[in-house]
């Protein structure tokens, strides 16, 4: 029999018997970040493509959610900090090697950018809106006449944001479940999918919904492909990664992963969307909610399970 024990009774809160230092705040933060990235990316994309008219919800209305989503995300992140009053230290330095650092900086840019983006659209909602200050009015004019270049910037930043939500985890070599190259793109795609689903849900325009549905189907396809790839990678990897995969293949997270993420979060909404595209009447809220839920559960599982995996020595 092999026995390993701590002689000196290690029982550190949130570290022993297994790591549990990140709680609900981080998956929420990652989810909201991905969602915002998804909405902004497609808003930017269709602006650049000149489809503001056809894709009005995507380009305009959905983006109104983004500042709120980002701020909520930042609040979640803030709540997770254990030394909160020193929060400002994040912005005294840029550390490119630290995803946490450039994530914080990306948010620093993209949050105001998203506010500017929606602020310049505000008169489309409230026509009698008045900015009171002249320079704000002229700034609004400037924004509206430079939407395309701004959209480019927004796309780049939203891509970084989306990838960041995955890299934040995958950069941790120490947690075998996170430590793989697929997590970045996977979280990016998953974030986009939640963004598209939200937009789709908001859209009243049938063609816009159809376009978004098609995009979402492609995203779901890529996601399924990446997940398969990730698991295959684990199975071909060293013991620690095998153990990591084990959490999803018979381990504690099997049901939540396969039922809530894969079936209810990806496959089932995909089927519903295919049905919708082939003319069946499906209340669009259902696939959208399922996708959002799947994305959220996925992040919870990844954060939770990842902390359980460790090197063996």
């Amino acid at each position: 029999m092999r026995e390993e024990l701590f002689v000196s009774g290690r029982d550190i809160p949130n570290i022993d018997p297994y790591l549990n230092i990140w709680h609900w705040q981080i998956p929420i933060y990652l989810f909201l970040g991905g969602l915002a990235a998804g909405i902004l990316f497609f808003a930017g994309l269709f602006t650049v493509m000149g489809k503001e008219k056809e894709m009005e919800t995507t380009v305009k209305w959905a983006t109104f959610l983004v500042p709120g989503v980002l701020i909520l995300g930042l609040i979640a992140l803030f709540l997770d900090l254990k030394h909160k009053l020193f929060f400002w230290q994040l912005y005294t330095t840029i550390r490119l090697e630290s995803p946490m650092s450039w994530g914080a900086w990306v948010l620093m840019f993209i949050t105001p950018l998203s506010i500017i983006w929606v602020a310049a659209y505000i008169k489309d909602i409230i026509p009698q809106w008045n900015w009171k200050f002249g320079y704000l009015n002229s700034f609004e004019k400037w924004v509206n006449s430079n939407r395309r270049p701004i959209a480019w910037v927004m796309m780049v930043f939203s891509l970084i944001l989306g990838i960041y939500t995955g890299i934040l985890l995958s950069a941790f070599n120490a947690r075998p479940l996170w430590n793989n190259a697929i997590l970045g793109p996977l979280f990016l795609i998953s974030g986009m999918s939640t963004g598209v689903a939200t937009t789709m849900w908001m859209s009243k325009n049938h063609t816009e919904r159809k376009t978004l549905g098609k995009i979402d189907l492609v995203l779901i396809g890529i996601e399924l492909f990446l997940i398969t790839h990730m698991i295959m990678g684990f199975l071909a990897g060293p013991t620690v990664q095998l153990e990591a995969a084990g959490l999803f293949l018979g381990g504690d997270f099997t049901v939540s992963f396969w039922v809530f993420v894969i079936i209810l979060g990806l496959v089932f909404p995909a089927i519903l969307e295919i049905m919708e595209l082939s003319g069946y009447k499906v209340p669009i809220a259902i696939p959208a909610i399922l996708i959002l839920m799947g994305g959220l559960v996925f992040r919870f599982i990844m954060v939770e399970a990842g902390q359980l995996t460790r090197y063996l020595y």
Partner: peptide, 11 residues
């Protein structure tokens, strides 16, 4: 300087 983000603990 530490904000208690926990990243180093994860790493």
């Amino acid at each position: 300087k530490c904000i208690g983000c926990g990243a180093c603990i994860q790493s």
